[in-house]
Deep mutational scan, measured.
Amino acid sequence: MAAAAAAGAGPEMVRGQVFDVGPRYTNLSYIGEGAYGMVCSAYDNVNKVRVAIKKISPFEHQTYCQRTLREIKILLRFRHENIIGINDIIRAPTIEQMKDVYIVQDLMETDLYKLLKTQHLSNDHICYFLYQILRGLKYIHSANVLHRDLKPSNLLLNTTCDLKICDFGLARVADPDHDHTGFLTEYVATRWYRAPEIMLNSKGYTKSIDIWSVGCILAEMLSNRPIFPGKHYLDQLNHILGILGSPSQEDLNCIINLKARNYLLSLPHKNKVPWNRLFPNADSKALDLLDKMLTFNPHKRIEVEQALAHPYLEQYYDPSDEPIAEAPFKFDMELDDLPKEKLKELIFEETARFQPGYRS
């Protein structure tokens, strides 16, 4: 834990890192770190609560700039109880001085990944967590956004079992017609939660990839272990087919990539493993919904509104309290091709509203 900075004593240090967030945020305490930044909790002297502050230093890398800009653009436009918001952003007053960006968010005690390492969940908890994931996802999908990296560590939890989806750095506007060349190379989302079509096709992607990830998360809540822990690309596919069985001819016809289709045709026939054999203690309604989410063919996979209306979630289902976005989200430009200098300018502009004396 960093010592509390005395008023006016300059930035606090946390594990050798400068955290320049005073005077409003003090009493910093280390939480963890990701690929390009550290997260601390801090005391907000204005709202009198502890908050989470993520320090991001992305400006050396085009990919990190892209992810940072995506996350900020999306989260500043989203407003939903099951999606983490941005409360404040701290950065230098000029673009030349801006080396880091500090993002202030609600402090959540833990995440689903940490929880599943230590606790076996009751059916009631599984049901409530799944409902909140789908409630947040309904809003995301209504904005025409794909999260693309749903996994237990991106689901934040607090002691009252509130759940918030975080990390929109890989999110995209849904565009089933656009052929994202190089899709697989830039697709760094965790393999275990990846839909089979991501490994088999490169053309376009749809909201059904997020539903697949939610199915993987439900299976993990039922058993405290990942359902498809593939060691590499082909191993991942083999794990999936080992449980779902061989795809039907109709399902194979959806695979545009001939090499991928021929690979699947070359494999020995596998039978589907019954879900109640894998999860003998699970609620039968939970397994019915799991089956509809972990469907090989993305066109037959359940959609988020149908999933919310499934009998497993009937005690929570309330369409009048499951809000959607006001308007579909649009990125003005494809960020993939922009140089990091341009992305830095866009991050600077996007964060201006939090600067003292800002006038829109």
Score class of each variant (00 low, 15 high):
2 A>G: 13
6 A>N: 00
8 G>M: 01
10 G>E: 10
15 R>Y: 12
17 Q>C: 08
18 V>A: 04
19 F>S: 14
20 D>R: 04
20 D>H: 12
21 V>D: 05
23 P>W: 00
25 Y>Q: 10
26 T>Q: 12
31 I>W: 06
38 M>V: 11
38 M>Y: 10
40 C>W: 00
40 C>N: 00
41 S>T: 10
41 S>R: 03
45 N>Q: 09
47 N>C: 10
50 R>Q: 08
52 A>V: 11
57 S>C: 05
57 S>L: 05
63 T>Q: 06
63 T>Y: 10
70 R>C: 14
81 E>D: 15
86 I>H: 04
87 N>S: 03
87 N>G: 04
92 A>K: 00
98 M>W: 04
98 M>P: 08
99 K>E: 09
99 K>C: 04
108 M>E: 08
112 L>D: 05
113 Y>V: 10
116 L>C: 08
117 K>A: 12
118 T>E: 11
123 N>P: 04
128 Y>F: 15
130 L>I: 04
132 Q>C: 06
135 R>A: 03
136 G>H: 00
137 L>G: 05
138 K>A: 09
139 Y>C: 13
141 H>F: 07
142 S>V: 05
146 L>E: 07
150 L>D: 07
154 N>W: 04
157 L>P: 13
157 L>S: 13
161 C>Y: 13
170 L>W: 05
171 A>F: 04
174 A>F: 03
176 P>H: 08
177 D>H: 09
177 D>Q: 10
178 H>K: 11
178 H>T: 10
179 D>Y: 15
180 H>D: 10
184 L>P: 08
188 V>A: 09
189 A>I: 06
193 Y>L: 13
194 R>V: 10
196 P>W: 11
198 I>D: 02
203 K>Y: 10
204 G>I: 11
205 Y>P: 04
207 K>W: 09
209 I>C: 13
224 N>S: 14
225 R>T: 01
232 H>K: 00
232 H>M: 01
237 L>K: 03
238 N>C: 11
242 G>Q: 08
245 G>P: 08
247 P>N: 02
253 N>F: 06
263 Y>R: 10
264 L>T: 05
265 L>S: 04
266 S>R: 15
267 L>K: 02
277 R>T: 05
281 N>G: 02
284 S>E: 08
287 L>K: 05
288 D>M: 02
291 D>N: 13
291 D>V: 14
293 M>N: 03
303 E>I: 02
304 V>Y: 02
304 V>S: 05
308 L>P: 04
313 L>T: 08
314 E>T: 00
314 E>F: 01
316 Y>G: 02
318 D>S: 03
318 D>N: 15
319 P>Q: 15
321 D>P: 00
323 P>G: 05
324 I>K: 05
327 A>V: 07
327 A>I: 00
327 A>P: 06
327 A>K: 05
329 F>E: 05
333 M>H: 10
334 E>N: 11
336 D>E: 14
340 K>Y: 09
341 E>G: 11
341 E>N: 03
354 F>E: 14
356 P>M: 01
